[in-house]
Design a protein around this nucleic acid. Structure first.
Lengths: 209, 209
DNA sequence: ATAAAAAGTGAGCGCTCGCTATCTAAATGC
DNA sequence: GCATTTAGATAGCGAGCGCTCACTTTTTAT
């Protein structure tokens, strides 16, 4: 006799399969890419039938948009978690940048980037992703403000944030190798340290606390 | 009677259609994205039949790889053309960065980036693109060395190049709007100027010429 | 207990994909 | 001039795509 599968309410069943589908979409996008994330692949990964998918999401587009906002909240939470340590020396900034880099290389961020790239050629997806993009940027700015808000103006903060996250995103795009630490020549580490040095030199600490 | 179509050698015909196919692939990738760049779409854009495509390229993969090296040479040429002006003041560096940004947003670079993203989920494409990637990076480093080689060591040059091009690539990925100049708040311009200021402060000019 | 509603299944439809086979047109070697 | 080789056109094949529909299973309301 198989396990009698304890009773669940309809809301619980619904929530469960929707969550499984969203998680499956995230991992599919992160490790197979946008084109290979077919509805069949997602359903296989989630362990449900295609009919179940199309009951909760009217179209593939809707599934992807829902996944986008799903990972967007995760991403901003991961970013906020980075904030917290004091950053005074160059080494402190290097540590923050390295930590940010691992976050940027996480599956959730890979997923987000994959959707952003797909949105460039897809007007519907682009407009659907717009609110999440703006909210994400705003929340990241707010989180950064809690860390360095006493040293930089909001404009400067936005500028340095743009430099840092865009550089890390660019690195993530050009880092095709599965093992990013085995980069030849350590130019990435050098670049991150250079950026840290430039930042602390340009925005020296106001005074020791 | 239709135009009698002046006589061409077989080599000329071959070269002509191959060039048309490569150019069509570039524009398709740049404005429709990787997934929508089907063999039918490329042939329609190039004005040839599918049979003609598969005569010269055994598979879609081969067409894309050929297109990759095609645009790679264009990109390094465009980058070299940027080198030439003296860069002493912050405004000079800002001008160079802005020019680099327009290059990075060009169709040839969009194509290259689209292929890079697709290569992340495609092992064959990834290995096929590897030599072009390395040669591109090396040539860009050499070109940068001609401009700033007298001020920076090779390692420092590689680091600052990594920071600059990765940030510009990241900007290109997050710039989904067709009109990049109409960005809200001018944070991009602020970020570019900040980066320029940090660079000239960190690497001051040795002496006036 | 039973009817209604919601959740989940799986076969399959129309369509487009990359690619092939068969053909005609054009250039080349003799 | 004629046979051979090369370039290009066209129809269509098998596979996979997003998605629908008739159906069963599970929960809910009475």
């Amino acid at each position: 006799m198989p396990t009698p599968t304890e009773r669940r309410t309809q809301a619980q069943r619904r929530e469960g399969t929707i969550g499984a589908l969203l998680d499956a979409t995230v991992s599919c996008l992160a490790e197979r890419g946008y084109a290979a994330t077919s509805t069949a692949a997602v359903c296989a990964e989630a362990g449900v039938s295609q009919g179940a998918l199309f009951r909760h999401f009217p179209t593939r587009h809707a599934l992807l948009v829902a996944t986008a906002s799903h990972v967007a909240t995760r991403n901003v939470e991961a970013f906020r978690a980075t904030v917290g340590a004091d950053v005074d020396t160059v080494d402190d900034v290097v540590a923050v940048l390295s930590h940010l880099r691992t976050i940027v290389l996480s599956p959730a961020n890979q997923t987000w980037r994959e959707l952003l790239v797909a949105a460039r050629a897809d007007a519907e997806l682009r407009t659907a992703l717009l609110p999440a993009r703006e909210s994400l940027q705003q929340q990241m700015l707010a989180a950064a403000g809690e860390l360095w808000g006493d040293r930089l103006t909001t404009d400067d903060l936005a500028a340095v944030l743009s430099v840092v996250v865009n550089m890390l995103d660019g690195l993530a795009f050009s880092a095709l190798d599965p093992d990013p630490t085995a980069a030849p020549g350590r130019t990435v580490e050098r670049a991150l340290r250079l950026l840290a040095e430039m930042i602390v030199r340009h925005y020296p600490q106001t005074e020791p606390r």
